[in-house]
């Protein structure tokens, strides 16, 4: 019994030392385990565009993003055209985050004198921990594009609605690690008016893309859209004549409030209908445009210490 008493006293003396800080830390860890919070994947991509098309990212609520995008001429046009630098098409755009899930944007392109407007909504966000976590993020986006070129034949009865094209996309993305993010983009483009009887009104495509981060502020991106051989109307082709699939490779460079995207692509237009369905350049024959997107964000509505 005496032995136990000694042991008891010894343990009582030792216990504060043994417990000390590591035990307190363990206590904290146990407490936090009880109420594990959902941890959402952030910054799957650096900006709201992968290259030509939409990425899974939105601008945050109350943030405006001014986007200026350029595509120069094709590099295989030789020194007379200064390897494409003599021409440029551009799109000026304005994006705004209505909530942390919903953003809208408008734009004007010199190519086909288009106006475009779109929304993008986060349906599901990749997360871990907590209840209902998801391995992927899903967003939906739709855009409407209006071509305002002069009518080809002003003498015939022309309808305003025949200038309109719609595009709908689902974006399914996963940030696999800090360095690697991938996304799939099933897409559907609808032309109110097709040019020829054999041209499709409805075109389906599957896009795929991703990024590899080369450093904290530099990433390498790839984006590809494959037009699918699905035709809704018999006798119609599944794609527009003479078009190719859109391919783009490029870099994202981030410097504080700016993101610069420099890339090479065979697409001329910067709206969904133009790059998914109207790309005519053959990437591997050198019909490549050098281009860049410039993004600058402005915080319009300052929410003091926003809650996620």
């Amino acid at each position: 019994m005496k032995k136990y008493l000694v042991l008891f006293l010894l343990l009582n003396l030792l216990s504060p030392l043994l417990r000390a800080q590591d035990d307190l830390m363990k206590m904290l860890e146990n407490e936090s385990k009880k109420e594990r919070k959902k941890d959402y994947a952030t910054a799957t991509f650096k900006t709201t565009r992968l290259i030509n098309g939409q990425s899974i990212e939105n601008v945050a609520a109350g943030v405006m993003d001014v986007k200026i995008s350029h595509r120069f001429g094709m590099v295989n046009r030789g020194s007379y055209e200064s390897f494409g630098l003599d021409q440029a098409t551009m799109r000026m755009g304005l994006d705004y985050g209505i909530s942390n899930r919903l953003m809208v944007g408008i734009g004007r392109s010199t190519y086909q004198k288009q106006y475009d407007a779109y929304y993008k909504f986060k349906i599901l966000r990749q997360s871990k921990g907590g209840r209902g976590s998801s391995p992927i993020s899903i967003s939906a986006t739709s855009s409407v594009m209006l071509n305002t070129l002069k009518w080809e034949d002003p003498k015939r009865q022309n309808y305003y609605t025949s200038r309109i094209t719609y595009a709908h996309q689902l974006i399914i993305a996963r940030k696999f690690s800090e360095g690697l993010s991938l996304q799939l983009m099933p897409s559907y483009v609808h032309y109110n008016l097709a040019q020829a009887a054999t041209d499709p009104n409805d075109i389906f495509a599957l896009g795929a893309g991703g990024r590899i981060k080369l450093s904290k502020r530099l990433s390498f991106n790839v984006e590809y859209y494959h037009v699918l051989p699905i035709s809704l109307v018999e006798g119609q082709d599944y794609r527009l004549p003479g078009t190719k699939n859109s391919l783009a490779v490029g870099f994202d460079i981030e410097t504080g409030g700016h993101v610069f995207q420099l890339h090479f692509t065979n697409s001329t237009g910067m709206t969904e209908k133009t790059f998914i369905t109207e790309t005519t350049g053959d990437f591997f024959k050198g019909d490549i445009h050098f281009g860049f997107n410039l993004s600058r964000v402005f915080t319009i509505k300052n929410k003091k210490f926003r809650k996620k």
């Binding site: 504060p16 417990r19 000390a20 800080q21 307190l24 830390m25 206590m27 904290l28 860890e29 407490e31 936090s32 941890d39 952030t42 910054a43 601008v59 945050a60 609520a61 943030v63 409030g257 964000v297 915080t299 300052n302 929410k303 003091k304 210490f305 926003r306 809650k307 996620k308």
Partner: peptide
């Protein structure tokens, strides 16, 4: 979260960095 032992003075803190919230979303990112 933090724990303090008022007898021994032992003190620990655990701070989740993602819980720091900024005025600007981009700064937070």
């Amino acid at each position: 979260s933090s724990v303090l032992n008022t007898q021994t003075g032992d003190l620990v803190f655990a701070i989740l960095l993602k819980s720091f919230h900024f005025e600007r979303a981009l700064m937070e990112e």
